[in-house]
């Protein structure tokens, strides 16, 4: 199941736990938990999309509908 928060969607079953998105998130929105990415501070997300751009596994992305609001 996808986990949604403020347009940010995580697909945990595809996350391989590399930590790239966590390390390069400019707002420290993400953290690793049990070798999977989770949202630690969703309010801080500014929707820049760098996590999606650099996720090798397509496991995190910005949901377009909510981004448009």
């Amino acid at each position: 199941m996808a986990v949604k928060q403020k347009g940010l969607v995580i697909k945990p079953d595809w996350c391989k736990g590399c930590g790239i998105c966590v390390a390069f998130c400019p707002k420290d929105v993400l953290k690793m938990e049990n070798n999977k990415v989770t949202i630690a501070n969703g309010d801080a997300c500014n929707g820049c999309g760098l996590c999606e751009l650099r996720c090798p596994d397509f496991a995190i992305y910005l949901e377009e509908d909510e981004k448009d609001e």
């Binding site: 996808a2 697909k11 595809w14 391989k16 736990g17 590399c18 090798p56 596994d57 397509f58 377009e64």
Partner: peptide, 24 residues
């Protein structure tokens, strides 16, 4: 579900891919 880009252009039944964790 995955992002609309991935859903549109990838063969969803073949994902996740075989590349290692952290492979670019």
């Amino acid at each position: 579900m995955a992002s609309s880009l991935i859903e549109k252009y990838m063969r969803m039944d073949k994902l996740p891919h075989i590349w290692c964790p952290g492979c670019g």
